[in-house]
Design a protein around this nucleic acid. Structure first.
Lengths: 148, 148
DNA sequence: CTCATCCGGTATCATCTGATACTATTTGGT
DNA sequence: ACCAAATAGTATCAGATGATACCGGATGAG
């Protein structure tokens, strides 16, 4: 690591948070404006679309959202008729989440828009740069998570 | 950009937020435990240490913290005797923030600890990888900020 | 000069998030 | 089989954050 005096500008945890907030705010605004979805709701939809019949706890594990946050999002989505909650036969405490017809329809609109937003944001970047970037992100995850 | 179906796991805004939250939580816990400082307070101290006599608004601009957040942090720090607020001669609405003796002493403890935490987190990374990583972060900042 | 407007900072309010407590259920040890 | 401990999900509570309103003070057009 670079030594020298501490400069907040150069401090990696700060830079990471700074950029992440910029991007998150941009994305959050777009999703709310376009689809009335909050970030946790959008994440739940995306995960359920990928894996039908997943439980709330598993969603939390995948996205590292608190189970309370997942619960709120799931309730909101099912009230809007986007998500159905089927009983989990083996465990009456748990539900299996699946997208309703309306949910799938919304997802069919949201997903391309998400990819488009991403493509737009990162249009100026080479695939190699992005690959290296995400590889570093995952390496950081591993370091932090191993120290738990 | 990679095409193909949307997978949240691979969605860059999500990955960025995920990793940033991991790191921020780790850092926040350490600072609170070691020095009783919240992230905004720590940032204010760091910026004032770098540039004595800065105004609150300028701190906000540098760190992209809301002026309300900066205000709260400044009030908390001055109540703890870590920060002094001098009148800005030319403009009576504004204060110039400077570290008190106690504030400088705390900073002298905090800064090395921050660098140590950073070094520890990123010990397994080459300087080249980190340089590339921060370069990409800054490029992302530029893209998002230009689209404002 | 003077008044409308703008600006730095603070207070207030609404929202979001996570910690904790709780309910209903499941599981494991005996 | 029984009961203590663990678990899925929810409700409730506390802390953090940003939008908005507000208050002096500054500024510029006339």
């Amino acid at each position: 690591m670079a030594k020298g005096p501490l400069r907040l500008e150069e401090f990696l945890p700060f830079r990471l948070s700074y950029t992440s907030n910029l991007v998150s705010d941009r994305i959050a605004d777009a999703y709310m404006a376009l689809f009335g979805l909050r970030i946790p709701e959008w994440r739940v939809i995306a995960v359920v679309a990928e894996q039908d019949g997943i439980s709330q706890l598993d969603i939390g594990a995948r996205t590292r959202m608190d189970k309370v946050t997942v619960s709120r999002a799931a309730i909101a989505l099912s009230q809007r008729g986007l998500l159905a909650r089927q009983p989990h036969g083996a465990d009456k405490r748990s539900h299996l989440l699946i997208l309703s017809e309306a949910g799938r329809a919304l997802y069919a609109e949201v997903a391309p828009k998400a990819l488009e937003l991403e493509a737009q944001l990162f249009a100026g970047f080479s695939q190699a740069e992005l690959d290296a970037f995400t590889a570093t992100l995952r390496r950081i995850d591993a370091v932090v998570l191993s120290g738990t």
